[in-house]
Each structure stands twice: as structure tokens, then as C-alpha cells.
């Protein structure tokens, strides 16, 4: 299989960046997309050129590191997959494949396809935790029963891998799906309920400070999310924030 790759090259955050064309031949359809990129990079290094930088680590769809905008979609064509789970069998001989980094003001490009997603960490640091000490001297794990349905929904929200595909996909670069997943996980569990009001306010405040856009409810994030985080979480966060704002003293 032969392909034409159009890949974004950007030498550092302040570089303007440009698309460059790389032909690649003998692509095996069983390769993952990142393995195809490995092969391309090996060629570039052998030719004395600068290899293309891209984020990746676990290569099994859980670490959330890989992050390519391929042919107009976050993580490329296909549903419920990360870039590392995209295989070359999704493409045809002769295809042109356009590869870009996540694009958002809150995710500055570090190099080529690598972006800085520190904004996500800072949102979590703003309140994405339960304030308990790590002493181990807490209640017995079974002291509070949690309805299975709530536990399952909390789990579903908690499976977010923090890849940023929601932001990359959203026409407004909104981080609502990401933030709402964390807010929901804790809001659904009695352990997280205690400080739910403060949490949602702090996290939304940080989200706004980071320069993400607003949610237009296009639903694109849910479609492109590799782990299928539901829009219900955004609604839940809207609800949580509304009641927290109405109840707050300020």
C-alpha cells in the first residue's frame, strides 16, 4: 500500500509551522498508524532528516498520550479508538492522509504533533480530588454502600483517558466533556458528594482561565471520544454548577 502523508511540522511553540508532504510506500495494512509513523521516522533519520515528533506511550489505548488529528477527525476515522488503535487497514492504496496536532489555544504545540496538555492537569489540581488524607485510616471500604447503578456510572465517567480528543474535535476547543467526566465521577459517589459544590466551581473556574471555548452542545466530542464518555456528564456538570452557583454565598 502506498500513501501520501501531509503532516504538520512546527519547530517549537513560537514557530509558525507548515504542512509537509511525505510519500510512504509498502505500508502493511496490519500496522497500527503509529507503527507506520515509526517506519516513516526511521526512513527520515536514515536520510538525515528530522523525524516527526509525536506523543505516544502505552500503544494500547489507555494512557491517553497519542493525539493526532487524522483526515479531519481526532484519532482519525473509526469510533472508540485512540490513534494507536487505528490500523492502516482503514486506508486504501493511493490515499492522501492529513495529520495535524490537536489545535487549541490551551494546548500549545511543543513540536510537530506534540502539544502541551498541562491545562488538563491544572484543572484536576484545581479540585479533581476528594480531600482525604492518605493515611489508610479511613472508613472500612464497605462502610458505605453505593448503589451499583451509581458506581457503574461513576466508573463510566472515570474511564476518561485525558487524551484531549474532545477539545481537538470541538469547533470551540471546549473542554467540557473532560471536565464534566471528572466532576461526574465524584458527584455520583457519596465519597465525592461532600465537596461536590466547591469542586465543580473550582474546576470550571480553572477551565475558563485556561482559555478553552464554550460548549455549543454539538455532540462532536462524544462521537470522537475514544472511550465513549457520554454527554450526560456535561448535563450533570451544568446541573451541579447551577445549583452550586445558586447556593453559594458569593
Amino acid at each position: 500500500m502506498n500513501l501520501t502523508l501531509k503532516i504538520w511540522r512546527q519547530n517549537g511553540t513560537n514557530d509558525k509551522g507548515r504542512m509537509e508532504v511525505y510519500p510512504i510506500s509498502d505500508v502493511n495494512p496490519e500496522m497500527s498508524f503509529l507503527e507506520m509513523m515509526d517506519v516513516l521516522n526511521e526512513q527520515l533519520i536514515e536520510d538525515g532528516k528530522d523525524p516527526i515528533a509525536f506523543d505516544h506511550d502505552c500503544r494500547e489505548g489507555i494512557c491517553g498520550m497519542c493525539s493526532m488529528f487524522i483526515n479531519g477527525e481526532a484519532h482519525g476515522p473509526g469510533r472508540r479508538i485512540t490513534t494507536c488503535q487505528l490500523h492502516m487497514r482503514s486506508f486504501k492504496d493511493g490515499d492522501t492522509v492529513v495529520v495535524e496536532p490537536w489545535r487549541a489555544a490551551a494546548f500549545p504545540v511543543i513540536k510537530d504533533l506534540v502539544v502541551d496538555r498541562g491545562a488538563f492537569d491544572r484543572i484536576q489540581q484545581a479540585g479533581g480530588y476528594v480531600s482525604v488524607n492518605t493515611s489508610g485510616n479511613t472508613l472500612d471500604a464497605n462502610a458505605i454502600a453505593v448503589p451499583k447503578k451509581d458506581a457503574d456510572r461513576a466508573f463510566d465517567a472515570a474511564t476518561c483517558i485525558g487524551c484531549g480528543a474532545c477539545v481537538a474535535t470541538c469547533k470551540n476547543s471546549s473542554a467540557m466533556l473532560f471536565v464534566s467526566a471528572k466532576v461526574s465521577q465524584f458527584a455520583l459517589l457519596p465519597q465525592g458528594r461532600v465537596e461536590a459544590k466547591e469542586r465543580v466551581q473550582k474546576m470550571v473556574r480553572q477551565m475558563d482561565l485556561e482559555g478553552f471555548g464554550n460548549c455549543t452542545n454539538t455532540g462532536a466530542c462524544e462521537v470522537e471520544c475514544p472511550v465513549g464518555i457520554s454527554l450526560e456528564n456535561i448535563a450533570r456538570m451544568n446541573r451541579e454548577y447551577l445549583s452550586a452557583s445558586l447556593a453559594s454565598a458569593e
Partner: peptide, 27 residues
Amino acid sequence: LTIQNRKARPVKYHYEKPSANSNWASR
């Protein structure tokens, strides 16, 4: 809101396929 949304993505994608994940009206 629109001004903020525009600011949130200063560099546009070269190639986007929004029809794959959302309807026209919502965008």
C-alpha cells in the same frame, strides 16, 4: 461566546471533517 470560541482556536485545521461527528445546524 462566539468571540471566546474563536479565540480558543487561533490556528485552524487544514482539513476538517465535521460532518463525521455533528450536524450542520449545531455548528
